[in-house]
Design a protein around this nucleic acid. Structure first.
Length: 348
DNA sequence: ACAATACCTCGTGT
DNA sequence: AACACGAGGTATT
């Protein structure tokens, strides 16, 4: 009996490695706050383990302390050109000294300074462009919980299983080819993507026409303005999503994605764009330019930290919305119609 | 340029 | 129980 248990333990033995982090790394703040949507957390005896795929690699991650990433490689792709160590250092940008950056941002801005001590360790992930665009097309008018559900469902249905860990099966993100299958829009509707189904289906085909994944990866070599212009030719990609992708997977850290929340932070804490009722193109640029001016060439990362600082523990916003003054006539009308349509559908 | 509207779905609050 | 609301927006008037 005892021997059997020891044998079982030996068979399941996991080899853990460590990477030194330049500055801090907080896995929870980095993996659950809306940059990536496919990391699972497992509660263990010695803390939380995060499991997920980075490309075709699958890792289990733990953090021993602020400055150490502890990992176990669950799956290594056949044709890998990089080591697990290299892959993780790249994904988490471990060679970028985050404490140095935070110091310079804190020196530049009192508001950042007042918040950073609680939220150091928010790292900007360097993600795969295809998964990144598709994910953020799905993020429109949506919430993190549902986005995660949609993307996991997408991978389970259209991606390939890579390996298992505990009771989880880890899937790869669907290939561009599989996203171009016939009737993709209706497939995605069945998966609960709603009106984003058409955007995703069209964007996938459009990416193929432009040169596929190579085209997306090639954007990393182009200047920021051109990256945004190129991305915005894809359906479902507007100014905010284009900035997300430019920043998170195309190496344009000067991109400042402005969603309703960053907008309200800009108004509340920086006195910007107050007079506009909607986030116009010029207000969008004004806010972005302000933060680029304030924080410098990696302004997007600084904003990501401020963004996380305004989430509560369940990933919801702390601050009050400045967008809907509660009595807005236009807004009310829209909502009522929306509800009416939903009601009709339910009865039918 | 800017404002107004529609768009799927779903957990939460009343 | 039923309904309204809003969630990391975008496309189309």
């Amino acid at each position: 009996m005892h021997a059997r248990m020891i044998m079982a333990a030996a068979l399941l033995e996991e080899t853990w490695h460590e990477e030194r982090v330049c500055g801090e790394l907080d896995l929870s703040l980095t993996l659950t706050t809306g940059q990536a949507f496919r990391w699972h957390s497992l509660g263990g005896d010695d803390g939380i383990t995060w499991v997920g795929a980075v490309g075709q690699y699958v890792f289990a991650l733990k953090s021993r302390d602020d400055s150490t990433l502890t990992y176990h490689t669950l799956h290594t792709p056949q044709d890998h050109t990089h080591t697990p160590s290299h892959t993780l250092r790249d994904y988490f940008r471990l060679d970028t000294d985050l404490s140095e950056l935070c110091t310079s941002w804190a020196n530049a801005d009192p508001n950042f300074n007042s918040k950073v001590s609680q939220y150091k360790g928010v790292r900007l992930l360097r993600q795969d462009p295809l998964e990144n665009v598709i994910s953020f097309i799905c993020s429109s008018n949506n919430n993190i919980a549902r986005i995660s559900g949609m993307l996991n469902s997408l991978c389970e249905n259209l991606g390939e299983p890579i390996c298992c860990y505990g009771d989880h099966t880890i899937y790869g993100f669907p290939t561009l080819d599989s996203l171009c299958a016939d009737n993709m829009e209706s497939t995605l509707r069945d998966l609960g993507f709603g009106y984003r189904s058409k955007y995703v289906a069209m964007a996938a085909k459009s990416i193929v026409e432009k040169g596929g994944v190579e085209w997306l990866l090639g954007l990393r070599e182009k200047p920021y303005a051109e990256v945004v212009t190129s991305l915005r030719t894809l359906s479902g990609v507007g100014p905010k999503v284009a900035d997300c992708v430019a920043m998170m997977s195309c190496d344009k850290l000067e991109a400042v994605p402005i969603d309703t929340h960053v907008w309200s932070v800009a108004v509340r804490d920086y006195g910007l764009a107050k007079k506009n009722k909607s986030l116009t193109a010029s207000a969008y640029k004004e806010i972005g330019d302000h933060f680029r001016d304030l924080f410098g060439p990696m302004a997007g990362w600084a904003i990501a930290v401020l963004f996380v600082a305004d989430l509560d523990r369940s990933g919801r916003y702390k601050g009050e919305s400045i967008q809907s003054p509660k009595g807005s006539k236009g807004k009310r009308k829209r909502k009522d119609q929306q509800s009416l349509k939903s009601a009709k559908k339910r009865k039918t």
